[in-house]
Amino acid sequence: MNHFMSSGCHPLKCYAALYCRRKPKTQRSKRYLESRESKLTENTKTAMFIRGGRTSEVVSQTLKDMYFLKKPDAVMFQKKNIMRPLEDQTSLEFLSDRNDASLFMFGSHQKKRPNNVVIGRFFDFHVLDMVELGIEKYKSMQEFHVGKFSLGSKPCLLFAGEAFENEPEYQRLKNLLIDFFRGPVIENIRLAGLEHVLLFTTLDGKIYLRNYKVQMKKSGSRTPRIELEEIGPSVDFSMRRTRLASDDLYKRARQQPKQAKPKKVKNINRDPFGSKLGRIHMEKQDLDKLQTRKMKGLKRKTSDNTDKKVEAKKVR
């Protein structure tokens, strides 16, 4: 009677190629797959911290400290992963796919490139940008004997230096660093919770990273006076190799969904001074109901009763 299950001229033959797209079998796996799908408003990016085949004390300490800065949106790999990110990205992309992570920091130490750190990001599980930085000078968090900020607080990011404005490589690096350290996108922020500042300064091919804790002092006004205290890590980086995304790919990665754009409000615009101008459409005014100036003499006397009351008041 039926031909779906048994007929020789099987329509399924044509679908064999599609058969890899199977439905998830359990609700749990379905939820898991859905959590990994692309979304309109995305999750906070997770960062992987990867040790290379050989790491020096400085490099592993840097990775540990950066992991602390990035927690809780971070994974620290305990095992060594022998790879060269700038030469071959396949294993990196594999790790990104496995961990659903789109940021990474890779540390290694070689004779050719001592104290090496590679920072990068992924788009759709493929490497988008990678920048290799050499650690020139390093002072870890432990060396600063001061209180740290509370875990998971959103840091303030500061950038200084002309290169971040003018040079394309540094511009991209700036964007990458913002992406890496900015933490979750939030709507509200607790004013007392602004306690961590990251400063990136660049001059003559060096990048200086400093971490500070914010202390709010009285200023006599509502806004507090800010004092800073260094909490580490403080790192002096030098720029090494880079592998940046092509403009085309970069543009594609930066596309914003149409739904996320704010809707245009009709009939309202703003003039150069920032005041709101609107056009209102009204019905024709009914002049019969117009309220003219009130005068005592024109007041209508409805009944004698009311007059008496008025008189009584006057007597009192």
Partner: peptide, 11 residues
Amino acid sequence: KTILPREKPIP
């Protein structure tokens, strides 16, 4: 304000 690359393409 700063436009950052997405993690995955627009659905």
